[in-house]
Design a protein around this nucleic acid. Sequence first.
DNA 1: GCCAACGTTGGC
DNA 2: GCCAACGTTGGC
Length: 154
Amino acid sequence: MPQQFWLMKSEPDVFGIETLAAQPAQTTAWDGVRNYQARNMIRDQMKRGDLAFFYHSNCAEPGIVGIVEIVREAYPDATAGNPTSEYFDPKHSVDNPRWFVVEVQLQRRLKQTITLAAMKDDPALAEMPLVRRGNRLSVMPVTAAEWQHILSLE
DNA sequence: GCCAACGTTGGC
DNA sequence: GCCAACGTTGGC
């Protein structure tokens, strides 16, 4: 399968790009996803070597702040089986896992944030779910053309 | 803080 | 299986 491109949202107050940069090997398990559409992409489609935009949501300046690489494909989300985790789900089990993670490694931070406002203003990006009203997907596919175009905005 | 949009839950 | 109620997301 050819390399694919993604966009992954994270709230900087919870886990921002600075937090990722501070992890060992600048790598983290992308845990806490509790939406089935996003889960299916994580579990079934994300492959090692794919690239993703790291997006800051729910903050003063929402937008893309970095690029990460998928370095490990899907495996069960440990937080779903941990009763002390805020992401605990009693319907998740080792025998029948419901939620999954991939591991991502920081490839680089962008020189400047590519803001949601800038992407909304760009006709070339009008088809992205990100700029659609009411979109709530925390993981979404990005086409190769969109990927290249967004990088040209940096 | 507001609120529109959306996903999930659960009664029937 | 429908759908109203509810909770969450996330921009503004």
